[in-house]
Design a protein around this nucleic acid. Structure first.
Lengths: 85, 85
DNA sequence: TACAAATGTAAAGTATTTTTTACATCACGC
DNA sequence: GCGTGATGTAAAAAATACTTTACATTTGTA
């Protein structure tokens, strides 16, 4: 029932960033290592708050850490495509 | 115990976007109106997945819909400021 | 006035995220 | 070989996001 609509670069970024360990990242973000493991492996989508914190640790915009793939999302195709501004 | 680290432009965007109602947005996002109300008022931070869906409805990048304010976050000041690339 | 549509609030229940605890494996250096 | 640090996995408990239901308020309009 759950495809993967959100991918992330966390593991890659950890290594680019001084070989940071899961535990270090967890500490910086303020969560447990388990949470990092689960998010890193895409076990479940994190809270927006934690997502922002992770991106902040890497000094990157959120969307360079997490990517949304609407094509895998059951709520993909909007009938009306009104965009804003 | 909970400051507001994340603000959003949802209400503003609803009106800019064809005067979309909470219910309409909820339907497009695939959640209930209650969820939209709660997120709109910042009652709790949404899941990253729902955040991405909301941004998709407005055809905007996530960070133009949700803004992170680390200065209000207890996990604000990183001691080491290693940035990535 | 009366009715309908949009919004605000609240409370109880369900689902999901996060923590806590625990153990197993692998690689490294001593 | 032994110990230590990093990672993988798992399962139950705690916390929190989300739903469902319900009702009150406001605004517009017939």
């Amino acid at each position: 029932m759950k495809k993967q609509h959100i991918s992330n670069e966390i593991r890659k970024l950890r290594f680019l960033n001084d070989e940071m360990t899961q535990q270090q990242l967890a500490d910086e973000v303020g969560v447990t290592r388990q949470t990092i493991v689960a998010i890193e492996k895409g076990k479940y989508p994190p809270t927006l708050e934690i997502s922002f914190r992770i991106a902040a640790v890497f000094s990157l915009p959120l969307e360079e850490v997490f990517q949304y793939h609407p094509e895998n999302d059951e709520f993909k195709k909007r009938k009306s495509d009104k965009s804003c501004r």
